[in-house]
Amino acid sequence: MSALVRSLLAGSILSGTPLLYATLAELVGERAGVVNLGLEGVMLIGAVTGFIATVHTGSAMAGVIAAALAGAVFNLVFAFLVVTRRANQLATGLALMFAGVGLSALLGARYIGSRISGLPEFRVPVLADVPIIGPAFFVHDGLVYAAAPLAVLLWWILFSTRWGLEVRVVGENPVAAFAAGKNPYALQYQALCLAGMLGGLAGAHLSLGVARTWAEWMTAGRGFIAVALVIFAKWHPLRAMAGALLFGGAISLEIQMQARGVKVSPFILDMLPYVLSLAVLAIWGGARRHTAPASLGRVFQGMP
């Protein structure tokens, strides 16, 4: 029993980490008023770039950095389309998602089956030896440990710095930002660049930390779960941690049940996180107004 609890907890954290990075990525973009449905594509680009870089350099650290940069570049393409070209955010996001799926498959085709050691695990001294909790929480790779502090950092940036205030104002009312003499476009580019880096990290953790291999479309919809998680988190980085843990738990439960040969169709188990997403959206729905950035999804047309 304790083995099950331990692997469930450890699994929740491991599977929750890429979700948290992805959720934070979506959250930064949405705070600046941009819905990015292309996040899935950004993650895949990050995952494949990170993997290729690791195979060639042998260093997972290099892979992580490459993934963040590739994610940022890919997301800047999205930014160019929706901010500069004022294209529809939803259509652009979906198109970029599929572009990311295809591009990552193309880039990664030669690397299917390549083996890497992936991100090294760190055992936190002393704490790792506490029964159950120790192995569940304190034997992970560096990106896992960095995730929660990053969420706190992002919370601080959004709510306590000038840049964070400006980003939030752009998401609420770009005209107000413009009237204050700020440049809404520049702020959206900056936010989307940061979002791309976080999305790339999410992908890198999948290929280098969780799966330690590359497979086509390995994100399997996690980018979309992150979009739902942003709503669950009510656009707040700290609540995003709880959401990521919950969904990580659902994924981990699915894996554990399959590993233990529970007699349920694997297809039903595969659906578990997504059914949970539906439940979240159904319960949260549009019940609370004014939690979403007011200008979310709208295209700032500039001044006549």
């Binding site: 710095t161 000038r162 205030l165 939030r168 104002v169 005209v175 107000a176 204050a180 004014h290 007011a294």
Partner: peptide
């Protein structure tokens, strides 16, 4: 031209010319 979801202080801070980074 205001941001209804933010506080008065935040709305005004946006217009302060010498607002610090933090």
């Amino acid at each position: 031209v205001q941001v209804p979801a933010l506080t008065v202080a935040e709305n005004i801070a946006l217009f302060l010319p010498d607002l610090g980074a933090v």
